[in-house]
């Protein structure tokens, strides 16, 4: 059983929901990324979505755009991101790591080389924001062959037919985008997410995580009962934006991940675990 499947199974047994923080690899600086990942797990993260820096992050709002720019100031490449995952795996064998990013860096490395190296590094899945199922045939197959999952997005604009199509190709979990907009947008609508979830459930038994617009315990606990997991990106990344190289590293990491601990408490409270 894959690490992702195992995590969702264990959570379901306890009646708990997955907490999925997103950070950009190499933000605020490459030397902090692995420590940050461990700190996220210690604060209650079940799965880590690790953003692969890209020069043109089209789907991101300003907060995460800036995180990509900070990482690229350090020239963080996909190759280095894989090294970070390998380093994380030396002391964590259980927490799934899903790479989230854009097609071009993966295409440039080559899909089969990526699949091979990602597997070796201990990556569990890949979510390329700008690669819908129509363009993903080859990639999905290579990932599957290497035992990794291809995670796809579903949007408020996805039709019944689209949901069926995406669900047919997806594995691991489905990522439900809660709103029309970019990451970090502020207009989360619970009723619309509820409707989306009803549609998704008709077509898939996969676990569903919901992301975009979840920024604190309150928004997370409103969404969590509807799905299997919540993704927290911009709110966490925003804390890293205030990073000060002159200040104490451990303390700053602790301050950043305290958001994850807060959200953990909030979603566990509504799940009654």
């Amino acid at each position: 059983m894959s690490r992702l499947a195992k995590v969702f199974e264990q959570l379901a047994e306890r009646g708990a929901k997955a907490l999925v923080p997103y950070i950009v690899a190499g933000d605020p600086a490459p030397q902090h990324s692995v420590s940050l990942m461990h700190a996220l797990v210690d604060s209650g993260a079940d799965i880590i979505e690790l953003g692969v820096p890209f020069s043109d992050p089209m789907a991101e709002g300003p907060t995460i755009q800036l995180a990509h720019e900070r990482a690229l100031e350090h020239h963080v490449s996909l190759s280095q991101v894989l090294d970070m995952v390998a380093a994380f795996r030396q002391t964590n064998a259980d927490t799934p790591v899903v790479l989230m990013g854009y097609t071009n860096p993966v295409e440039h490395m080559g899909y089969s080389q990526f699949a091979e190296r990602a597997k070796q590094a201990g990556v569990d899945g890949l979510l390329t924001v700008d690669m819908p199922p129509e363009e993903a045939g080859e990639t999905s197959q290579l990932l599957r062959d290497a035992g990794m999952d291809n995670i796809f997005l579903l949007a408020p604009t996805s039709s019944d037919q689209r949901v069926a199509k995406v669900a047919a190709l997806a594995s691991g979990y489905l990522y439900c985008v809660s709103l029309k907009g970019v990451t970090g947008a502020g207009h989360l609508d619970i009723d619309s997410v509820r409707e989306q979830m009803q549609l998704i459930r008709q077509h898939s038994d996969l676990p569903v995580t919901v992301g975009f617009g979840i920024k604190d315990g309150e928004s997370a606990s409103a969404i969590a009962p509807l799905c299997e997991g919540v993704v927290v990106g911009s709110a966490l990344v925003d804390r890293l934006a205030k990073w000060d190289n002159a200040a104490d590293t451990d303390k700053q990491i602790a301050e950043a991940v305290s958001l994850i601990a807060d959200i953990r408490k909030a979603i566990d409270a509504v799940a009654d675990v």
Binding site: T103, D130, P132, L154, A155, P156, T157, S159, R162
Partner: peptide, 12 residues
Amino acid sequence: GGRFVSETLIFA
């Protein structure tokens, strides 16, 4: 060519 965009835009 093709369509390399996020899911939200596919319908549009």
